[in-house]
Design a protein around this nucleic acid. Structure first.
Length: 639
DNA sequence: CAGTTATGATTATAGACAGCATGTC
DNA sequence: CTATAATCATAACTG
């Protein structure tokens, strides 16, 4: 099947042809046969880089009206926005929390790219453009099974289906174990394929040799390891070097941030692919210890990438790799889920990760996503993914990751926190006003589809009493209605637990003497919510943080003997303290040094605090209370 | 005894969505 | 429970 045979305008056809796209890839052709270009609903469970974007574009361009493209990450939203913006005669908009086009303009675009939370929020707040959509494409639908964020996605999709009856839905999924369940739920045709434009061989390393799934082998010379050398690391170094020496780029995945940096340092010794200019450019992005370490590695062609990096650094590393200025990136699993960064070879040194109480195997899906980064279309003759193991683990790694299917996608909607959030939002946005009404709205969720025998009304009833106790919901007879607080909580997009915590904080503040209410008070309230991620409190710091908490006890809304659990509260105090010092003019470098967190962590906490302080201010208005500190601190956070 | 090394104990561990209203080169 | 590397504290040891 050829592009020119598709129902596309001449301008589009020539756009594709000038980009070398003339003949459709088999999965793309299958999607066309399933009806993507004719308004049909399709779920495509196919590998990364096998042309998903083109399938999405086909659906959106042939749809009879505006289209929405839903992504899980802001960075992906930007990437897709730029891709779609290249299409001739197509106007593209973008809407994410940190980057928003004006609301009324959104409806005027042919394509809008947005994160799933942003779409959920737009639906809750009755954005008019939602009703006019003709086509919705969901990228990475398998995240339906992600705890925390999966429920938002399923509620969003089920609501979209209900609100826009003739909507064309197209869902793009990684290869998972039960794509038919997703297709069935969305009433869509399933297109499944393992085809890739660049062949990929996956293998396991052990004893100086890699055995691949296609029967081929690769011998690797690993210099004898000294007493201080780690065998897996030295094998990884050898595999990376080999890839670079034969003209390819390489991604190396490890377990923790520190190990990503350590591996990059180790590889920097080999001086694989000098790039001194890149080092200078990175130095200009600002100097934290992490930043300087990054620029030093980069001079030798090696970068590292993890969430502790400031986002400017992360983007710089991604771009440098895409431009082939970096030969290697040592990364934590972030990189596998993010923007498109393909490489000739992918080396996965660690397959286990510490989860809090045990060492656990990384999900098969995550490992497959990492492997899927191997092979650059048009640039590499093939891609290679290597799991580093040893003689003892080789067979197990093969079974578990190379030949095995990824996990099934299961709904996480029954999680009480998720249920509370969505029950409140359904009632607050006026979609239902009774137990049965809410249950009816939820009957279209993936959860209901997967669990047909569960009594949804019963499930809803369990959390309705929580929400009532939190004063977010009123129950009068059979009728449910959101309180002013509940409405504001939903609109501000904070979780019910966060809303209730802020409200109780505001009430306590009103009983406090004026001179006790300070910036620390405001920060303690917002940091002590589940929507603010906590900051690791080391044992070394603990005693000193305890002292800090004691000496400022009068300023906090939580009495120390009431804090429960105390350790979590102390963690919140640490976050509040960091943010407080930030407002007092400390720069990232000082904070990173003093509190042992990454520059990127400071950045993300500041961003979240801005959002939560805004929500606190809105809740103040709903309570008819006045706590100017929320506004004042917020103003100090952004420079 | 002072300084050095060996041994054992402790510590820490991936990621990241959302509101809203002004001001600015 | 199924980990491991880096760091820290203390004990053992050497000259």
């Amino acid at each position: 099947m050829r592009v020119r045979d598709l129902p596309l305008s001449a301008a589009l056809v020539s756009h594709y042809e000038s980009n070398g796209i003339e003949e459709l890839y088999p999965p793309q052709a299958a999607a066309v046969e399933a009806g993507v270009a004719a308004g049909g609903r399709v779920v495509a469970a196919i590998p990364t880089a096998s042309g998903k974007t083109f399938i999405a574009e086909l659906a959106m361009l042939t749809a009879d009206g505006p289209a929405l493209y839903i992504v899980p990450l802001r960075a992906l939203a930007r990437e897709k926005y730029e891709t779609f913006d290249q299409l001739p005669g197509v106007s593209v908009g973008i809407s994410t929390g940190d980057f928003d086009a004006a609301e009324e303009e959104l409806g005027d675009h042919d394509i809008v790219v947005a994160t799933s939370e942003k779409v959920d929020s737009a639906i809750r707040n009755g954005a008019p453009w939602v009703e006019r959509l003709a086509c919705v494409v969901v990228d990475e639908v398998h995240l339906l099974g992600a705890p925390g964020r999966g429920p938002t996605l399923e509620v969003t999709l089920s609501t979209l289906q209900r609100r826009v009856p003739d909507l064309q839905l197209v869902a793009l999924s990684a290869t998972v174990d039960n794509p038919e369940a997703i297709a069935d739920w969305l009433d869509a045709e399933l297109v499944e394929s393992a085809w890739r434009p660049v062949s990929l061989r996956t293998g396991v390393y052990a004893d100086e040799s890699v055995e691949f799934d296609d029967g081929t082998d690769l011998d690797v010379v690993v210099p004898p390891t000294g007493p201080n050398d780690d065998e897996a690391t030295e094998a990884t170094v050898a595999l990376v070097e080999d890839a670079v020496e034969t003209g390819g780029q390489c991604l190396a995945f490890v377990r923790s941030r520190r190990e990503a940096e350590a591996l990059a340092d180790r590889l920097a010794d080999e001086d694989l692919s000098p790039a001194p200019a890149l080092g200078d450019e990175l130095d200009e992005l600002g100097g934290t210890a992490t930043g300087r370490q990054l620029s030093e590695c980069a001079r030798t062609g090696v970068g590292f990438h993890h969430a502790g990096l400031r986002s400017a650094h992360r983007v710089a590393v991604e771009n440098a790799f895409r431009d082939r200025r970096l030969a290697v990136i040592c990364a934590t699993p972030t990189l596998a889920a993010g923007v498109n960064v393909p490489a000739r070879r992918v080396v996965i040194r660690d397959q286990k990760r510490y989860t809090g109480d045990a060492m656990e195997w990384i999900p098969v899906l995550d490992v497959h996503q990492m492997c899927g980064r191997a092979g650059r279309p048009h640039l590499d003759p093939f891609g290679e993914a290597v799991l580093v193991g040893d003689a003892d683990t080789k067979a197990e790694l093969f079974d578990r990751y190379v030949t095995a299917d990824a996990e099934a996608v299961d709904s996480q909607f029954a999680d009480p926190e998720a249920l509370r959030t969505h029950v409140l939002s359904v009632v607050a946005s006026g979609f239902a006003d009774s137990l049965d009404g809410v249950a009816d709205v939820f009957s279209a969720t993936y959860y209901a589809h997967q669990n047909p025998n569960v009594d949804l009304a019963e499930l809803v009833a369990e959390v309705v009493s929580d929400l009532e106790a939190m004063e977010l919901l009123d129950v009068t007879g059979e009728t449910l209605s959101a309180t002013t607080l509940g409405a504001q909580t939903s609109r501000q997009y904070v979780s019910p637990t966060t809303g209730a915590r802020i409200v109780s904080g505001i009430r306590t503040i009103e009983t406090m003497a004026d001179d006790r209410v300070t910036a620390r008070t405001a920060l303690e309230v917002v940091c002590d919510t589940p929507d603010m991620h906590d900051t690791y409190l080391g044992n070394q710091e603990r005693a000193q943080m305890y002292q800090y908490a004691r000496s400022h006890a009068a300023e906090f809304t939580t009495a120390m003997h009431d804090a429960d659990p105390f350790e979590e509260w102390l963690t919140a105090v640490k976050t509040a303290r960091i943010l407080h010092e930030w407002t007092e003019g400390s720069d990232i470098e000082e904070l990173v040094e003093r509190y042992r967190i990454g520059p990127g962590d400071v950045e993300s906490r500041v961003e979240r605090a801005e959002w939560l302080l805004g929500a606190a201010d809105a809740l103040c208005a709903a309570l008819d209370a006045d706590v100017p500190e929320f506004r004042e601190v917020r103003a100090l956070l952004s420079p």
